[in-house]
Amino acid sequence: MMLMTMVLLATQGPPTLSALAKLSPRAAGEIVLAGKDHEPVAKIVVPTDRGMDPPGMIERQLVERPVAGPQGCSRRRWIARFSHGPDIAEGEAALSSVSASTEVALPGAAGCPDDGYVRLNPGLEATQALPALRYLDDIRRGDAPAKFTCSDETASGLCADPGKIRQALAKLSSWAVTRQNGQMVFWLGTPGQAVTEVRYSPDRLDQVTVSRRIPAPF
């Protein structure tokens, strides 16, 4: 495996999907992320919704091994895009671009988890997101006082009372977080389905706005 990696690194031209399929995630990461500062790649994710790929484009996600810090765990998810012409087999699609996003999670009893990470929108640092994620967990458990303002487009009963709100939030996973107009904003649920949004200001932690809406169609 090491010999194959060295050969690919020495080969001129961008790597192809068929070449990377023969490598371990760590070795594939060395090829795709050559020249970039990165942690070892722990796994490669093949997106399930191929219908979203533009014609001639194929995506692979290279997920780094998480790094533990004093506030929690962080890792990067690299999006590698491969392109091929109409007369070229998918396996010969060549790497055309690479971009990365940062994800964070709170540690478990066994350390950094393998799954359940929250994507940070551009401009937000892990040092800002991790305390916010911990506070969201406090809200879910009832360990943090909160006066809720709630709205629901789905008639799910989310806003019936504060207890129902906390129960609903505890059952949902966060998948993205950002900072807007001085507020921390979380999106919970499953991307593409009904979105539950939680927002609060670090200056008014007890004022929490929760809303559930149906996402606009693509």
Rank of each mutant, 00 (worst) to 15 (best):
K22G: 05
P70M: 07
G35F: 07
M4P: 02
R77G: 11
D143M: 04
Y135L: 09
S24T: 15
S99T: 15
A109H: 06
A94R: 15
C112F: 08
L136E: 11
A168N: 13
A144L: 07
G123R: 15
I79H: 15
N121L: 14
Q183W: 00
Q180W: 07
S173W: 00
R140W: 12
A27E: 15
T178L: 09
A110C: 01
K22S: 10
A194W: 03
A129E: 09
L188S: 08
T209R: 15
P86N: 09
S151V: 01
G56W: 10
P217E: 03
S174C: 12
R213T: 13
G29V: 05
V7T: 06
S173D: 14
A194I: 02
A19P: 06
D114N: 12
A129S: 09
G142L: 10
A68I: 03
T11P: 02
L136P: 12
R75I: 00
V118F: 09
K164D: 14
V67C: 00
S83C: 01
V118I: 13
R199H: 04
E64Q: 03
Q167K: 14
T102S: 13
L33D: 06
G35T: 03
V45A: 05
L62T: 06
A21W: 02
R140I: 05
P113T: 04
D49K: 12
S74D: 04
N181F: 10
I214V: 13
S83T: 11
D37W: 01
E30L: 14
A28T: 04
L172A: 15
T196W: 08
F186T: 10
R204G: 06
P40L: 06
P86F: 02
H84K: 11
D143I: 00
A80I: 09
P86D: 11
K36W: 09
R60L: 13
V118E: 01
V177R: 00
L172V: 05
A144W: 05
V63P: 07
Y200L: 10
R140L: 09
K43N: 08
P145S: 12
S174Y: 00
T149K: 09
G142D: 02
P47T: 08
M1D: 08
F148G: 13
F148P: 13
A21N: 14
E103S: 06
V210P: 12
A160R: 13
P215V: 06
L33I: 02
P145R: 09
P145L: 07
S97F: 08
K43A: 14
C150E: 09
G91C: 08
G108P: 02
P113K: 09
T5F: 00
C150I: 02
R179C: 10
D137V: 04
W78I: 10
T190Q: 14
A105N: 03
Q61L: 15
A105Y: 07
I31D: 11
S211C: 02
M4F: 01
A80G: 12
V104M: 06
Q12G: 15
C159V: 04
L20F: 11
F186N: 11
P215Q: 02
C112N: 06
P215A: 04
T154C: 07
L95V: 05
